[in-house]
Protein backbone atom coordinates (compact mmCIF):
# COMPACT_ATOMS: atom_id res chain seq x y z
CA UNK A 1 0.00 0.00 0.00
CA UNK A 2 1.33 3.42 -0.93
CA UNK A 3 1.28 5.97 1.90
CA UNK A 4 -0.22 3.16 3.97
CA UNK A 5 0.37 4.97 7.23
CA UNK A 6 -1.60 8.02 6.17
CA UNK A 7 -4.42 5.95 4.72
CA UNK A 8 -4.73 3.86 7.88
CA UNK A 9 -4.78 6.99 10.06
CA UNK A 10 -7.53 8.35 7.81
CA UNK A 11 -9.50 5.12 8.11
CA UNK A 12 -9.18 5.11 11.89
CA UNK A 13 -10.51 8.70 11.99
CA UNK A 14 -13.37 7.70 9.68
CA UNK A 15 -14.37 4.70 11.80
CA UNK A 16 -14.01 6.75 14.98
CA UNK A 17 -16.38 9.42 13.66
CA UNK A 18 -18.83 6.80 12.37
CA UNK A 19 -19.16 5.07 15.72
CA UNK A 20 -18.60 8.00 18.07
CA UNK A 21 -22.12 7.79 19.61
CA UNK A 22 -21.36 4.16 20.51
CA UNK A 23 -18.04 5.16 22.06
CA UNK A 24 -19.64 8.01 23.98
CA UNK A 25 -22.42 5.81 25.36
CA UNK A 26 -20.18 2.83 26.18
CA UNK A 27 -23.15 0.51 26.38
CA UNK A 28 -24.56 2.32 29.40
CA UNK A 29 -28.33 2.23 29.72
CA UNK A 30 -29.82 5.71 29.55
CA UNK A 31 -32.81 6.30 31.78
CA UNK A 32 -35.86 7.49 29.93
CA UNK A 33 -37.40 10.74 31.15
CA UNK A 34 -40.21 10.58 33.72
CA UNK A 35 -42.22 13.79 33.69
CA UNK A 36 -43.99 13.93 37.05
CA UNK A 37 -47.78 14.34 37.13
CA UNK A 38 -48.24 14.22 40.89
CA UNK A 39 -48.45 17.89 41.75
CA UNK A 40 -51.04 18.81 44.45
CA UNK A 41 -53.15 20.60 41.85
CA UNK A 42 -53.38 17.51 39.61
CA UNK A 43 -54.15 15.23 42.57
CA UNK A 44 -57.10 17.46 43.48
CA UNK A 45 -58.63 16.98 40.02
CA UNK A 46 -61.53 14.57 39.70
CA UNK A 47 -60.95 13.85 36.05
CA UNK A 48 -57.22 13.97 35.40
CA UNK A 49 -57.19 15.57 31.96
CA UNK A 50 -55.13 18.24 30.27
CA UNK A 51 -56.51 20.83 27.87
CA UNK A 52 -56.45 18.30 25.06
CA UNK A 53 -55.78 14.54 24.90
CA UNK A 54 -52.46 13.16 26.15
CA UNK A 55 -51.17 12.11 22.72
CA UNK A 56 -52.12 15.47 21.24
CA UNK A 57 -50.37 17.35 24.04
CA UNK A 58 -47.30 15.14 23.67
CA UNK A 59 -46.70 15.99 20.03
CA UNK A 60 -48.46 19.32 19.56
CA UNK A 61 -47.99 21.27 22.81
CA UNK A 62 -45.29 23.46 21.27
CA UNK A 63 -47.58 24.41 18.41
CA UNK A 64 -50.40 25.14 20.84
CA UNK A 65 -48.21 27.32 23.05
CA UNK A 66 -46.93 29.15 20.01
CA UNK A 67 -50.50 29.75 18.80
CA UNK A 68 -51.53 30.89 22.26
CA UNK A 69 -48.63 33.28 22.38
CA UNK A 70 -49.61 34.76 19.01
CA UNK A 71 -53.31 34.97 19.96
CA UNK A 72 -52.70 36.65 23.30
CA UNK A 73 -49.77 38.91 22.51
CA UNK A 74 -50.68 39.92 18.97
CA UNK A 75 -54.48 39.67 18.84
CA UNK A 76 -55.43 40.12 22.49
CA UNK A 77 -57.57 36.96 22.54
CA UNK A 78 -57.38 35.11 25.83
CA UNK A 79 -59.97 32.34 25.62
CA UNK A 80 -59.18 28.91 24.18
CA UNK A 81 -62.01 26.58 23.26
CA UNK A 82 -60.84 22.99 23.64
CA UNK A 83 -62.09 20.17 21.42
CA UNK A 84 -64.47 19.07 24.20
CA UNK A 85 -65.96 22.58 24.35
CA UNK A 86 -64.38 23.65 27.63
CA UNK A 87 -62.97 27.14 27.78
CA UNK A 88 -59.48 27.83 29.06
CA UNK A 89 -57.53 30.97 29.73
CA UNK A 90 -54.63 31.02 27.28
CA UNK A 91 -51.78 31.47 29.69
CA UNK A 92 -48.61 29.53 30.24
CA UNK A 93 -48.14 30.68 33.81
CA UNK A 94 -51.78 30.70 34.94
CA UNK A 95 -53.17 27.70 33.04
CA UNK A 96 -50.37 25.28 32.17
CA UNK A 97 -48.15 25.90 35.15
CA UNK A 98 -51.10 25.84 37.56
CA UNK A 99 -51.18 22.05 37.28
CA UNK A 100 -47.69 21.37 35.96
CA UNK A 101 -46.23 23.55 38.66
CA UNK A 102 -42.71 22.17 38.53
CA UNK A 103 -40.68 23.08 35.47
CA UNK A 104 -37.84 20.91 36.71
CA UNK A 105 -39.93 17.77 37.19
CA UNK A 106 -42.18 18.21 34.19
CA UNK A 107 -40.97 20.36 31.26
CA UNK A 108 -37.25 19.84 31.68
CA UNK A 109 -37.54 16.06 31.92
CA UNK A 110 -38.18 15.50 28.20
CA UNK A 111 -36.69 18.76 26.96
CA UNK A 112 -33.31 17.97 28.46
CA UNK A 113 -33.48 14.39 27.23
CA UNK A 114 -33.86 15.42 23.59
CA UNK A 115 -31.85 18.66 23.99
CA UNK A 116 -34.69 21.03 23.21
CA UNK A 117 -34.33 24.51 24.62
CA UNK A 118 -37.65 26.31 24.29
CA UNK A 119 -37.37 30.04 24.69
CA UNK A 120 -40.50 30.35 26.89
CA UNK A 121 -38.41 31.49 29.82
CA UNK A 122 -36.73 34.28 27.91
CA UNK A 123 -39.85 36.32 28.73
CA UNK A 124 -41.77 34.34 31.32
CA UNK A 125 -40.54 34.03 34.86
CA UNK A 126 -39.63 30.44 35.59
CA UNK A 127 -41.35 29.08 38.67
CA UNK A 128 -39.45 29.01 41.95
CA UNK A 129 -38.47 25.40 42.49
CA UNK A 130 -38.78 24.58 46.19
CA UNK A 131 -36.69 21.46 46.38
Amino acid sequence: MYDGGKIIIGLIIFIGISIFPFILTMGKAVAKPEPKLDTPEIQKMVEKKCVESKMYMKTEHMVMLNDWRDAVVRDGLRLYKATDGKLYDMSLQNTCMKCHSSKKNFCDQCHNYVAVKPYCWDCHIAPQEGT
Partner: peptide
Amino acid sequence: DIVGVKQITMGLVSF
Protein backbone atom coordinates in the same frame (compact mmCIF):
# COMPACT_ATOMS: atom_id res chain seq x y z
CA ASP B 1 -43.32 10.98 19.89
CA ILE B 2 -39.80 12.38 19.98
CA VAL B 3 -38.97 10.92 23.38
CA GLY B 4 -39.88 7.48 22.01
CA VAL B 5 -37.63 8.12 19.00
CA LYS B 6 -34.73 8.96 21.25
CA GLN B 7 -35.38 5.79 23.25
CA ILE B 8 -34.94 3.83 20.01
CA THR B 9 -31.77 5.64 19.01
CA MET B 10 -30.23 5.44 22.48
CA GLY B 11 -31.19 1.79 22.59
CA LEU B 12 -29.27 1.32 19.35
CA VAL B 13 -26.10 3.07 20.47
CA SER B 14 -26.08 1.38 23.88
CA PHE B 15 -26.80 -2.06 22.37
